[in-house]
């Protein structure tokens, strides 16, 4: 993983190590950290493919303002992965096109 092991100024306190899937592959990341950061640490830079030109898009603003990092997370498209925390067992998928809005269920309710 592309983690900074040692830093002259900062001490990184990572959360619990969890497993999640990305397009069917099993990857590891830290719970509570943004999905996009976990993917980047695993060398994954392309998060979606645009609907018309089929261009790759990835991280850009990292503060939930630009929409570049939209992915399908647990079946839900257009999730801003730069500010959505990673959880154990999450299913993260490359978003192709606009994504299909799933039927309304109570599944997402907390």
């Amino acid at each position: 993983m592309k983690l900074i092991e040692e830093h002259p100024i900062l001490d990184f306190k990572h959360g619990k190590r969890v497993t999640f899937s990305f397009d069917g592959r099993q990857l590891e990341g830290y719970e509570g950290e943004p999905i996009a950061a976990a993917l980047h640490a695993n060398g994954v830079k392309v998060y979606r493919e645009t609907p018309v030109r089929k261009q790759p898009r990835g991280f850009f603003c990292a503060i939930g303002k630009c929409s570049s990092c939209f992915m399908v997370v647990d079946g839900v498209p257009n999730v801003r992965t730069c500010i959505t925390p990673l959880k154990e067992g999450m299913h993260v998928e490359t978003q192709r096109g606009k994504g299909v809005i799933p039927a309304i269920t109570d599944k997402g309710k907390r």
């Binding site: 592309k2 983690l3 900074i4 830093h7 900062l10 990184f12 990572h14 830290y30 950290e33 943004p34 950061a37 980047h40 640490a41 830079k45 392309v46 998060y47 261009q55 790759p56 898009r57 990835g58 991280f59 850009f60 603003c61 990292a62 503060i63 630009c66 730069c82």
Partner: peptide, 22 residues
Amino acid sequence: HLPGVYGAGAVQTLMNVYGVKP
């Protein structure tokens, strides 16, 4: 538009908040 063109703030977030090498 390519992934790898990042805002400076995004690069800082990756490396200084989450300890990920951009």
